[in-house]
Computed example of a mutant assay.
Amino acid sequence: MKSHLLALLLLASSTSLAGAAGQKVDVVLNEGCMCCHEWIAHMQAAGYTVTSTELDYDAITAKKKEVGIPEEAVSCHTAMVGGYAIEGHVPAALVDRLLAEKPDAVGLAAPGMPLGSPGMGSDASAEPFDVLLIGKDGSTSVFATVEPDRG
C-alpha cells in the first residue's frame, strides 16, 4: 500500500502539497473504527491537521445526507476539508488535487471500503478502485482510478 500511495503523492504538484500543510480536516466516524483511524493517520502524514468525532450509525448517516453524499457513494467515515466532503478512504494526493482544482462539487468519495486504499490493507490485498467526484446535483463521475503498485 505504501508504495502505490507514495506514487500518488509524487504525482501531486508541489503547489497542491504545500497547500495541504496545516489544512484542517474534520472527520466523523463510527465509534471504535480502526480503519478510519488509519485513514486519519494517512492524512496527517500528508500534512493535514485532523480532528475527529466518533458518532453512532444514525448520527453519521444524518451527517452524510446533510453534506450531500449519495447512497451509492457511501463509505465508513465522512470528512470535511476546504468546503468539500470527503467520503471514505480517499488518498491524500487526490484531496490535494481536489483542493488545487476547486471544482464546483460536493466532494470526493471512495465508495465502500476498497482493499489497498489508505487504511484498508496492504499491497498484497490491493485492488484498483475509483474515486468519484460528487456533483452538487448528487451525480457522480470518476475523478481518478487508483491502481495498486504491484512492482
Rank of each mutant, 00 (worst) to 15 (best):
residue 2 K to A: 15
residue 5 L to T: 07
residue 7 A to E: 14
residue 7 A to D: 15
residue 8 L to D: 09
residue 9 L to D: 13
residue 10 L to W: 04
residue 13 S to V: 01
residue 14 S to K: 14
residue 16 S to A: 13
residue 17 L to N: 07
residue 20 A to T: 00
residue 26 D to P: 01
residue 26 D to T: 14
residue 27 V to H: 06
residue 27 V to W: 09
residue 27 V to R: 07
residue 28 V to I: 05
residue 30 N to W: 08
residue 31 E to L: 09
residue 31 E to D: 12
residue 32 G to C: 04
residue 32 G to F: 07
residue 33 C to W: 04
residue 33 C to D: 03
residue 38 E to F: 03
residue 38 E to D: 10
residue 39 W to P: 11
residue 39 W to E: 12
residue 39 W to T: 07
residue 40 I to T: 09
residue 41 A to P: 00
residue 41 A to G: 05
residue 41 A to E: 14
residue 41 A to Q: 12
residue 43 M to F: 10
residue 45 A to K: 09
residue 51 T to K: 15
residue 55 L to W: 09
residue 55 L to V: 14
residue 55 L to Y: 01
residue 56 D to K: 13
residue 58 D to Q: 15
residue 59 A to V: 05
residue 61 T to V: 13
residue 63 K to L: 04
residue 64 K to A: 00
residue 66 E to K: 08
residue 67 V to D: 03
residue 67 V to R: 04
residue 68 G to T: 10
residue 69 I to W: 11
residue 71 E to C: 01
residue 71 E to H: 08
residue 73 A to E: 05
residue 74 V to P: 07
residue 75 S to T: 07
residue 77 H to T: 07
residue 80 M to P: 00
residue 81 V to F: 03
residue 84 Y to R: 03
residue 88 G to R: 03
residue 90 V to R: 00
residue 92 A to W: 00
residue 94 L to V: 03
residue 95 V to Y: 00
residue 95 V to M: 09
residue 95 V to G: 00
residue 99 L to I: 04
residue 100 A to N: 03
residue 101 E to P: 05
residue 101 E to T: 13
residue 102 K to W: 05
residue 103 P to E: 11
residue 104 D to H: 06
residue 104 D to C: 03
residue 110 A to E: 09
residue 111 P to Y: 02
residue 111 P to K: 08
residue 111 P to T: 07
residue 113 M to V: 01
residue 115 L to E: 05
residue 116 G to Q: 08
residue 117 S to Q: 03
residue 117 S to G: 04
residue 118 P to D: 06
residue 120 M to C: 02
residue 121 G to I: 06
residue 121 G to S: 05
residue 125 S to C: 11
residue 127 E to V: 11
residue 128 P to C: 00
residue 130 D to T: 01
residue 131 V to Q: 02
residue 133 L to C: 11
residue 133 L to K: 15
residue 134 I to G: 08
residue 135 G to S: 11
residue 135 G to D: 15
residue 137 D to S: 13
residue 140 T to S: 14
residue 142 V to G: 02
residue 142 V to W: 04
residue 144 A to W: 04
residue 145 T to D: 06
residue 147 E to K: 13
residue 148 P to I: 09
residue 148 P to E: 05
residue 148 P to Y: 05
residue 149 D to A: 10
residue 150 R to W: 07
residue 151 G to V: 03
